[in-house]
Amino acid sequence: MARRTFEVYRGTAADGKLENYDVEVEPGMVVLDAIFRIQAGESPDLAVRWNCKAGKCGSCGCEINGRPKLSCMTRISDYPDGESITVTPMKAFPIIKDLVTDVSQNYRANKKIPQFRPRPKDAEDGWRMYQFEVDKAQEMRKCIECFLCQDVCHVLRSHGKHEEFAGPAYMVRTAAFSMNPIDTVDRIEFLKETGGIGYCNITKCCTEVCPEHITITDNAIIPLKERVVDRYYDPIKALVRLVRRGGKNG
């Protein structure tokens, strides 16, 4: 039975520090198991969020050696023996306590996305959609809302633009609705104004950390940016819009 040292953030936003814990580890253990061992032993009040412990619910996002990760899917053996492992809360969100952060801004961002509205039914028993039509949206619907992409995004993490930019996770959600073959809602103005899609300068950090391997930048954000560009920045369309507006107002 090997022992490993974990340096875990303890405290609140105002006052906290890394504490060292010496934990007995067995083969196959993940970082969340080590947190449980600390709770069962010396620190029952060590705060952590978790639910499924199988990479399906996205509750246990944190930073392991500074990298955004799900602690339930990160094996201890991925880190070299003899080196300590640092576990800290997601940096882009206010700390509540220890490894738990206030992620409510994500739920607020989600609420602003114009809701899905389907076209009328194609038949009495519903709609007809082919698999090739739903594949793209299904990739987006794999999102487990772990917020790791929000955490790594420099617009949120370094610049704190939570109110101006919905963040990669909600670009993915918007894409999921807009790529649904039976959706009828126009979300382009939302993307440009409220969603702040212009803030993203496609560094692809979000894609790298996604535990569901969603190609966030290439398959969600870039296609959505193209739609915004087509509407607002296409010179011919802009001219048409100007003439129309002039006509209406005049």
Partner: peptide
């Protein structure tokens, strides 16, 4: 089950486009 498609659920499809 069917009403959830109207709320945005995307189930896997058959070759003729049904659930």
């Amino acid at each position: 089950v069917r009403e959830m498609e109207g709320w945005g659920a995307l189930f896997d499809r058959t070759d003729d486009g049904r659930m």
